[in-house]
Amino acid sequence: MTTATTSPPEIDRAPAPARRRSPLAALGGQNLSLIGALVVVLALFGVLDDNYLSLSNMQVVAEAATLTGLLAVVQTVVIICGGLDISVGSQVGVASVVSAMVFTATGSGSLTGMVAAVAAGLAIGVLNGVVIVHGRVNPTIATLAGLAAYKGLAQLLSDGRAQGYVLDDDLFVFLGRGKIAGLPVMVWILVVTAVAVHVLLTYTDIGRNLYAIGGNDTAARLAGIDINKYLVAVYALIGMVAAIAGILLTARTGSGQPVSGSEGLELKAITAAALGGCALKGGKGGVGGTLLAVALLGALENGLTVQGINTFWQNVAQGALLVAAVVIQQRRNGERAVGLPH
C-alpha cells in the first residue's frame, strides 16, 4: 500500500527590490572626474578673467568646440568597434573645399554644394572601410595614409588656397551664424548628432553588435554578426559626419578651407574620445563621456587663448591629456607594463 505524499505548498516570494543607483553612481567615475576637471577649469579661468564665464564667451567656446565634437562623437563609434580614423581632419578639408567650389561653380544654390560635400565624405569613408576590411590593412595605418592623401587632395582641388565665397547665401549664413532658441545652429547640429548616435549605441541591436565587435570580434563573428559590413558602414558614417563638419567650417569662415581650421582636428577628436572613457582596444565607451571631454578641451583651449598663452602650449596640453587618458585606462584595466613581467 502506497501512501500519497503531498509536496508542501509553494510560497510566493516577492522579488527582491532592485537597488537604486544614486545619480552620482549612474554618472560613473570617469564622467564625474571629467565634470570635476571642467568645474576646476571654468573656476580657474573665471577668476583670472571676469569675462570668461560670460554668456557670449561660453557661446564662443561652444561654437569653437562644435567641429571637434562632431568628429569626436563618430570617433567614439569607430573606437568602440575596435577601429580608429586618423584621417578625419583631412576629410573635413576635402568637404569644405568641395562644398564651396561646387556652390560657386554651379550657381544653383548652396544645397548642391552641400550634397556634393556629403557625397565626397561618404565616398572617402567607404574607401577607408574597404581598404581596411578587404585590403586587410590595420586601421591606424590605413587612415594615417588617408590623413596625408586627403590633405593633398584638398590642396590639389583648391590649389592650396581658400576657395569660393558663401556668405551671400542665406543657408550658409544661417548654418554658420544663425541661432535657434538662443543657441548657435552649429551647436544644435552637434546636439542632434550626439543624441542620434547615443540612441544608436544604447538602444538598438546595431549598437549592441558594435560593442560586441570591439569587445571580442571572434565571438561576434561566431554569433553571426557580419563584421565586414559593420566596419565599412561605420567608416562611411564617419565620412558623412566629417563632411557635415566641413560644410560648417565653410559656413563659419565664408569659404572652402583646404587645411586652415581642419588641421589637428583628428588629434582633438581622438583625445576627447579617450578622455571620455573609450577603450582604444574597443568594446567600451559612450557619447556622454566624449561630450564632457569635448567641453573640457574647449574650455581649456579658450581659457589659454584668453590668457594669451602661446598656441604651441595648447598642442602640448592636448598631447599630455591623450597620454594621461591612455595611462589611466591601462591602470584601470590592469594592463601589464610593456617589457616588464608584472
Rank of each mutant, 00 (worst) to 15 (best):
R21D: 11
V61I: 15
G303K: 03
V60L: 13
T202I: 05
H198E: 14
T76Q: 10
S56G: 13
T112G: 01
S7G: 09
V294P: 11
G69K: 08
V191N: 03
S99Q: 09
T68K: 11
G303V: 10
V287H: 03
G339Y: 11
E10M: 07
G256W: 12
G277S: 05
A273D: 08
D50W: 12
A219Y: 00
I225Y: 06
I309Q: 00
A95W: 15
L267G: 11
R331C: 01
L249G: 02
R221M: 02
L156A: 04
V78P: 04
G254M: 07
G107T: 10
G129H: 08
K229V: 04
S22D: 12
T5W: 06
G113T: 09
R332S: 11
I180E: 12
G319S: 10
Q59I: 15
Q155S: 01
D50K: 05
R177A: 13
A299K: 03
V130T: 13
P184F: 01
K179Q: 13
L44D: 03
D169E: 14
P341D: 07
I132G: 08
I189Q: 08
L111N: 00
L127W: 04
L231V: 15
L53G: 07
G261H: 05
G239Q: 13
G215H: 01
T106I: 07
A194G: 10
P139M: 11
A18F: 04
V88W: 00
A299D: 07
H342K: 04
F174L: 13
A299F: 08
F103I: 08
K281F: 09
I244G: 04
